[in-house]
């Protein structure tokens, strides 16, 4: 098997290749493809926010659309009040984290199916409140987002940079001592508590970081489309994040991006021809993956790599 340092080198190389390719993508591709890739990165960040609380901390939350919607509106108002893009994005992060602390503090009091229900009902409530308060959200009709960048490519590089930042920050967190506690809580909350950790505190922290990331994705999506509406709070956004993460591989930083990329690409490809069968296709794909490869695409790749290495080692022994 690979030693620790070799594994790190391989992983770094495996990450740098797609990052570089994506970075030069707009130089060779058309407008439609650049817009699609921009959207994929945003969805990747959104799925990553879910992965942090589910894949790393073990909480199946359906409340991500709350943060997504709030992030989109905070950015919209920030831009409307002419705070500038950077300050607006900082506000998005802070508001997402603060809301994550509040919602997390309530949600961690319940466990299992109740936790799932509380977060789902929370998302539905926020959606209804947003629909009813047109003076603030514009309801169904939504609000226009004042833009700072005009071009598709400029916007792509903005999203690309923020997406890299989000992935890097998440990577640092999950590999830190705090990230280890998240993973311990996912493995056995009771056991982590017996070791002296205030597990509810860590779960709330995970919620806050996740809320900041989901808010960031919402802000970026609103900024990219130039429009936000109460529908940004719809729970189906949360469901998408779940599907992308499970498909790509939960508990990994790359998995949510891969899942989001694959399904967004498939959705766009099928929508013009077989749009009706898209949900059926995604459903079958998910069932197959969950049964056959619970680690998602990243888990599958890791397993194949492991087979290849052990196969080679086996043949050397012979």
């Amino acid at each position: 098997m690979f030693t620790g340092s070799k594994r790190v080198l391989l992983a770094t190389f495996a990450a740098l290749v797609p990052i570089t390719l994506i970075g030069v993508f707009p130089l060779f591709m058309g407008r439609f493809q650049v817009v699609l890739l921009t959207e994929i990165i945003i969805w990747g960040v959104f799925a990553l926010s879910f992965d942090l609380i589910y894949g790393y901390t073990g909480m199946l939350s359906f409340g991500q659309s709350i943060f997504f919607g709030v992030g989109a509106y905070v950015l919209t108002y920030g831009m409307t009040w002419e705070l500038g893009l950077l300050l607006s994005l900082v506000m998005v992060l802070l508001s997402g984290a603060l809301l994550g602390l509040i919602i997390g503090a309530v949600a961690v009091k319940v466990r299992g199916a109740k936790f799932f229900l509380v977060t789902l009902v929370g998302a539905i409530l926020f959606h209804l409140v947003a629909l009813d308060n047109r003076w603030l959200t514009g309801g169904d009709d939504g609000l226009l987002v004042p833009l700072q960048f005009g071009g598709v490519v400029d916007n792509f590089y903005l999203i690309y940079g923020v997406g890299l930042f989000a992935a890097l920050v998440t990577l640092v967190i999950v590999r830190s001592p705090v990230g280890l506690v998240f993973r311990m809580i996912k493995g056995d909350k009771k056991r982590a508590e017996l070791l002296g950790y205030w597990t509810d505190g860590y779960r709330i922290l995970s919620f806050a970081i996740s809320g900041a990331l989901a808010g960031l994705a919402g802000g970026l999506y609103g900024y990219t489309t130039g429009f936000v509406s109460a529908d940004f709070f719809h729970w189906s956004y949360s469901a998408d994040a779940v599907i992308w993460t499970v498909l790509g591989g939960s508990g990994t930083v790359a998995g949510p991006f891969i899942g989001a990329a694959l399904l967004t690409f498939i959705k766009e490809s099928l929508s013009s021809t077989w749009g009706v069968i898209y949900p059926v296709f995604v459903g079958l794909l998910l069932i197959g993956l969950v049964i056959g490869f619970p680690g998602g695409i990243v888990g599958l790749v890791k397993r194949v790599a492991s087979w290849t290495v052990s196969g080679k080692e086996g043949s050397t022994d012979e």
């Binding site: 001592p177 705090v178 993973r183 493995g187 056995d188 070791l195």
Partner: peptide
Amino acid sequence: GPFRDLTVEENLRGAAQRGSLF
């Protein structure tokens, strides 16, 4: 009681780091 998805080192580190997290 060890966390089954973590390595031996991660288990020991997780148990040892409380109180001196950083």
